[in-house]
């Protein structure tokens, strides 16, 4: 069989074979997280930064013992930050945590009900982080004007939401995602809202460079199997995009020749 190799996903000068990026939250335990992440074949794995436990839980094995920096490109995120200041502090802590690692996922949220990005604070934080030498993959709304501004500032990747974080509602505004893809010269990844494999395939068919998801795998009945499904969906969607889909038609067009029919 002939293989049709794809170009790698390139973010901030680094190349990745996988276009599926995985979160590490909401799993039953580290073992399940590790198994699902392996099955997903993801190269980039995102995690959160939180206060250490003080007291009896100190010194227990941690996430990075399961998802090691030797095997994965770790992408610290600023989930839970509601101001530019907190997001910047979190990124600086993450850089220290990972020995100078500069790639971060910036998200500054607006409120706890929607977890919708606060674009004003996101723009502020992005500027500070870029000035401080970070490579910023930025979670944002699906507003193409904001996306363009973030790219012009120098963000390494634009990551519009498909729908609300953790909602599993898929891509609610594919037209906006498409607009962002068409105008962007840096990678565009749908981040948030993916619920099942067809959502991930849709993101890729729209021309996105990748997909970042967490809950769709972690909250599936069988996370390891869903990790496999997502890996396949991202590849399938990517191949369909590169292959170029047929035009949509208003009328039918038979697939079999009309000539030689027995009733002809």
């Amino acid at each position: 069989m002939t293989s049709h190799p794809d170009t790698p996903l390139t973010v901030a000068g680094r190349e990745f074979d996988s276009r599926l990026l995985i979160g590490t939250g909401k799993y039953r335990d580290f073992a399940q997280a590790g198994a699902a992440i392996r099955e997903s074949e993801a190269n980039i794995v995102t995690f959160a930064v939180r206060r250490t436990h003080l007291g009896e839980a100190a010194g227990e094995p941690g996430l990075l013992d399961t998802v090691s920096p030797e095997h994965y490109t770790l992408l610290p995120n600023t989930a839970g930050c509601y101001s530019a200041k907190d997001a910047v502090r979190t990124c600086r802590l993450a850089r220290e945590l990972l020995d100078g690692h500069s790639l971060v996922k910036l998200e500054v949220l607006g409120d706890e009900n929607t977890l919708y990005p606060n674009v004003t604070e996101t723009l502020k934080a992005a500027q500070t982080l870029l000035d401080d030498g970070f490579d910023v993959m930025v979670y944002t709304s699906d507003d193409p004007i904001v996306a363009r501004e973030l790219e012009a500032m120098g963000c390494a990747a634009i990551m519009p939401l498909g729908s609300l974080i953790g909602s599993g509602q898929g891509i609610q505004n594919p037209y906006n995602v498409r607009l962002i893809v068409e105008q962007s010269r840096v990678p565009v990844l749908v981040d948030a809202g993916i619920g099942t494999a067809s959502d991930a395939a849709m993101a890729m068919e729209l021309g996105c460079d990748g997909v970042l998801l967490n809950s769709a795998i972690a909250h599936a009945d069988d996370p390891v199997r869903m990790a496999r499904a997502m890996q396949q969906a991202v590849r399938a969607g990517r191949n369909a995009f590169i292959a170029g889909r047929m035009p949509r038609r208003q009328s039918a067009s038979p697939s079999s020749p009309l000539a030689g029919r027995i009733n002809g």
């Binding site: 979160g23 590490t24 939250g25 995102t46 995690f47 930064v49 939180r50 996430l63």
Partner: peptide, 26 residues
């Protein structure tokens, strides 16, 4: 405070100290 400087960094009355680690998140 970089890891390499922890030993030479004294803690003073009123300091606000944060110690963080990596946890699961998306």
């Amino acid at each position: 405070v970089p890891r390499s400087r922890l030993a030479e960094t004294p803690l003073a009355d009123g300091d606000q100290v944060e110690i963080v680690h990596a946890i699961g998140g998306g």
